[in-house]
Amino acid sequence: MPAKMPWAEKATFLVSRHLGIDFDYMKETVCCVRPGVWKPLNPDWWLTLTSQNLATAEKQNITIVDSCNGCYISHWECLQELKEDPEKLEMVNRNLEKAGLKVTLNVEVKHFLQVLYEDVGIEKIKENVVNPLNIRIMRHIGCHARKHDERFPRYFDEIMRATGAEIVDTPYDKTCCGLLLYFGDPNASVFNRIGVKMQTAKELDIDAYALICSGCYDQFERAVKIYKDEKGIVFETPIVHFSELLALSFGYKPEDFGMMYCRPIPPTKLMQKLKEGK
């Protein structure tokens, strides 16, 4: 998120502090590490490198909260695997020891959706909505947020509906963005996954995609550029983060978090619609 969508990072902080969550950047953090790159290379390497963040969080006595599904699944699955496999835990600690770190499994990993829904609660979120959003959105929750059955998708829908947004159901709601497929089969990744969703959004004339994962955002951004630069096809549906919509419904203005700088599709039409309250 810090490298791809700073407007969403700012909105996430605004929303969290507005709701009274004791939320700050994790100090001494490194990349999650990207599971789609490291896990296929060697699962033990992925376990070792991901454990650096777990060990650091333990040392700082904090809970890791991820908004990106990729970061969440990397931290969460790594922790689960270390809990279930003492030999892997030993291997990881042997490697971490060289950098003066150790995992004792005394750490918790949560998704941002979980914090909002389970710790803050939907009623408190509803109480803070002062500017209901009269917009139609297409959801893109992302595959890794479906790890725990329909729990996180339900949180996403309920929170988005609390903002006043109408979620338009489509047959492609569960279709993967294709990010993890990109290295291996770029054509399928772009044209058979994300492209299908983008075409659907265009046909349904929705106001925005709402997503929560910065990995999925990366793929949307890439696909928009590929379609435009290599195919001459222009998509105009802006890709906004869940926190941006939540912030707007709490009464923040787009300029409070830099929504107008959102790439690759500026949300000009969406901001105009929200301003006019149509």
Binding site: L49, K98, A99
Partner: peptide, 9 residues
């Protein structure tokens, strides 16, 4: 620290 882990492991 990450480099050290990458190197020494």
């Amino acid at each position: 620290r990450k480099r050290k882990i990458l190197e020494e492991s």
